[in-house]
């Protein structure tokens, strides 16, 4: 009865048509002690399957190492940045060419400033001359006024002469 069932299952098993449940049944049967002699050659197979399922992975996986590695690299990066910060300004700092350029720039700046000063001096002179001109024009106005007074004076003398 049981044997018949098992034989059927084996047939199905070889055609890969068994379900997981039926396979569990087969396994249980073949792992037990009373296996029918004509099916005995299946026994090692199922034994092997159940044995190999017990095999375990025992090695530790160093998960932490990823993080510590990252930190290591961060520190390396920090050190390199620091070193670069110290070395670069010394090595690549203002070269002689740069210094010369700066001096040249300063000299031209001074020259231009001098030129501007000269110009402004000239401007001031011009300004004083302009004030002189203004004075002249004032004098002229005064002269004109006085001339008009003179005219009035003439008119008055003419009247006086007429009255006489």
């Amino acid at each position: 009865m049981v044997l018949n069932n098992i034989e059927k299952l084996i047939e199905k098993y070889n055609n890969a048509e068994t379900t997981l449940k039926e396979e569990a049944q087969l396994k249980a049967y073949f792992l037990s002690d009373d296996v029918a002699p004509h099916l005995e050659h299946y026994k090692p197979m199922f034994q092997y399957f159940s044995n190999s399922k017990k095999e375990q992975y025992t090695k530790d996986v160093p998960l932490k190492s990823i993080k510590t590695k990252l930190y290591q690299w961060i520190s390396v990066a920090a050190v390199t940045v620091l070193m670069l910060g110290l070395i670069v300004p010394k090595v690549l700092g203002p070269s002689e060419q740069d210094l010369r350029d700066q001096e040249m720039a300063l000299a031209t700046y001074n020259q231009t400033m001098e030129a501007f000063n000269l110009i402004s001096l000239g401007m001031n002179k011009g300004k004083t001359q302009l004030t002189n001109l203004a004075l002249v024009s004032e004098n002229i106005n005064e002269g004109v006024e006085q001339a008009s007074r003179l005219e009035e004076f003439n008119v008055i003398t003419n009247r006086i002469l007429k009255n006489k």
């Binding site: 098993y13 070889n14 055609n15 890969a16 050659h41 299946y42 090692p44 197979m45």
Partner: peptide
């Protein structure tokens, strides 16, 4: 199925 049959035959 092929694999199982091979194993069975050899066994």
């Amino acid at each position: 199925s092929r694999a199982r049959k091979t194993i069975r035959e050899k066994l």
